[in-house]
């Protein structure tokens, strides 16, 4: 259970409040107009921003003040998910050896298995620049597999991909999350992503991240804020 307990965040005139919980293993979309605070919500969960008040808890443990890498969260950003000068083995290896040390045989095997799982077998020596956009996303997901955290936070990492490729990636995310039994938080500005992928949806609008609602129920009878966003 991921709990945001009376979390309030403020910077300048921007405010965001969140007070809800999500069950482990769910697939949750985070939707809302741009600038409403979707990415900020993920940053608060992942530890890149600190709430002014309130607590973030995972399975009842307070993680509000833990640094990002100590949290049970693997995150993919909009861009720069890979170091461009390192080959895939070294990029993925950093998930297992954050001190940059050489990988042991077992760890190397784990990297290869993860790459195979996402369909990149044999590409260990490639650098990200030598991969297509879709392959780069697969490589990043392979690293999420290696990190093996119970929460996966995706901040629109597939926004630059075409529709077909994006659907493919979301399917892969679902498979990866199922392998790990992980909770997925997916930020997207595309309502189609939410409906196709997420069991629950969190609507972020007007300074508030609302508690998750079952996706189909939400979209079949949208509240005013969502209606305004969708333009229906």
């Amino acid at each position: 259970m991921l709990t945001l307990e009376a979390v309030e965040f403020e910077t300048g005139r921007f405010r965001l409040a969140a007070d809800f919980a999500v069950a482990a293993g769910r697939r949750v979309a985070v939707v809302g107009p741009s600038g409403a605070g979707k990415s900020t919500l993920l940053d608060l969960v992942a530890g890149f921003r600190m709430p002014a008040s309130g607590r973030v808890l995972w399975q009842g443990r307070d993680i509000t003040h833990d640094p990002p890498n100590r949290r049970p969260i693997a995150m993919l950003f909009q861009e720069n998910n890979m170091f461009p000068h390192l080959d895939l083995v070294r990029n993925l290896g950093l998930a297992l050896r954050p001190d940059g040390g050489a990988l042991r045989r077992k760890e190397l095997g784990a990297v290869e298995t993860a790459l195979t799982r996402v369909g990149l077998a044999g590409m260990e020596d490639r650098r990200p620049g030598a991969l297509s956009g879709g392959q780069q996303s697969r490589a990043a997901l392979a690293r999420v597999l290696l990190q093996a955290r119970p929460v996966i936070a995706l901040d629109e990492p597939f926004a630059a991909l075409g529709p077909a490729l994006k659907r493919e990636m979301l399917t892969l995310v679902r498979d990866v999350a199922q392998d790990l039994g992980a909770l997925v938080l997916l930020v997207s500005h595309d309502p189609g992503d939410a409906r196709g992928f997420a069991q629950d949806t969190v609507l972020v609008a007007d300074g508030t991240a609302q508690p998750p609602v079952e996706t189909e129920a939400l979209f079949s009878d949208p509240p005013d804020a969502l209606r305004a966003y969708l333009g229906t």
Binding site: A46, F48, P67, P68, N69, R70, A74, M75, F77, N80, N81, F83, L86, R90, L94, A95, P98, D99, G100
Partner: peptide, 20 residues
Amino acid sequence: DYARLALALGLTPLAWVRMV
């Protein structure tokens, strides 16, 4: 570009300097 990624992976300061 990469400070957040390094933070997310928990790179040690030495690894950040040496590898990034």
